[in-house]
Write a protein that binds this DNA or RNA. Structure first.
Lengths: 211, 211
DNA sequence: CCTACCGATCGGTAGG
DNA sequence: CCTACCGATCGGTAGG
């Protein structure tokens, strides 16, 4: 596994392996020894790049947040650009997690392990974007296209969490049923559920800005 | 019999503390030392009741499954006894987790930590009951009351996972939004979402609110 | 249910 | 990026 071809600097290789292992086995279930072995170096070498295990965790989380901050704007902007594009926005969010299921698993784990720090992270980085979405939903309610009894914040949160849950633990939960729905099937139903629960049954004709 | 101290046998006290700690900090984040301290005994004493840490985990899981098997039938029977009782069924499921959030957290953690064993557990214990529900949904589809494009398995799974997620990590996710929805609010919206996405919109009545 | 003790592994440091 | 070494904690056993 280890060769002199350690070109893609060691630090980022450590990050990749740590992300994978933390997502799969959890922070407490992963020794830095295991991480360094996956990279092909010795433990002290890893500790040269990251002062401590906690430091490595923070770096892993910060690194992932980069992807979030990169992906979310385009996802949520898509959602606010037209009624019929909601499914594309939800699909984009789903695709973000499906692309690498470990993203969903890691977030799920960290939410369980360290609620407060994760809450803080969400607050600082994601809030502006979700605010955009809930604001747009409220506009839809005033316009009559979105159900009046819908709770914008709770609805938004539910859809995000459902996408994470479907990817992170969906396949396991699937065993509750005789016919295990694939993650794709679960996400397809999520989109259907989202649309059916968001829009009014017979929206007042609202297709004026069709592309 | 012992009268001085109200000690409902040590074994179950160990189970209670272990359940709490496993749910809060995870299996790998909890030492049997910590469990025994919570109970007020020494570690070797705990190991007299449970041969190993893995043994303790199995017992905790089996113990919780008892509650599930006790609660699920009544929940799902309620769901199949009438169209308008769906919300009561969902509320019952939600209440089961709200009553002790650690139930949701523990299940979430175990699904992440040990997918296969948990899948097996679900398969053996929960499948009959969910089959009842999906069968009923299919009947509703044939009768026309339930949306034809709904995926019964995926829909059922989504609602169960959403309830677990809302209780286990909902409060953390709430920080994504400027106005944190309480767990109660999240579950209320879950019920609304479930109904709106399950049933067909009312047959075109005379009301003409369409512009 | 306890005291006493075990080897293995943990995260981390010294020093080059 | 390495070898060598550290104290602390881990799960578990002996034996009463």
């Amino acid at each position: 596994m280890n060769v002199e071809t350690s070109q893609p600097d060691v630090r980022s290789r450590i990050l990749v392996e740590a992300t994978r292992l933390f997502a799969e086995r959890g922070y407490n279930g992963t020794s830095i020894q295991a991480v360094s072995e996956s990279v092909g170096i010795r433990r002290p070498s890893l500790l040269y790049h990251f002062k401590s295990k906690a430091d490595l965790r923070d770096a892993v989380l910060a690194n992932m947040l980069t992807y979030w901050k990169d992906a979310l704007p385009s996802i949520l902007t898509a959602a606010t650009s037209g009624g019929d594009r909601l499914d594309r926005a939800l699909s984009a969010m789903a695709a973000f997690f499906v692309e690498d299921p470990n993203r969903a698993r890691l977030i799920n784990r960290e939410m369980l392990d360290r609620p407060e720090p994760m809450g803080e992270l969400f607050r600082e980085n994601l809030r502006p974007w979700t605010g955009l979405l809930t604001g747009y939903i409220r506009m839809g309610q005033e316009a009559g296209s979105v159900r009046a009894d819908l709770d914008p914040e709770a609805w938004t949160l539910q859809m995000i969490m459902a996408a994470i849950g479907a990817v992170a633990v969906g396949p396991v939960g699937g065993h509750m049923l005789s016919e295990h729905p694939s993650v794709e099937r679960q996400l397809r139903e999520l989109v259907r559920t989202a649309k059916a629960s968001l829009f009014n049954p017979r929206p007042p004709a609202q297709t004026s800005e069709v592309s």
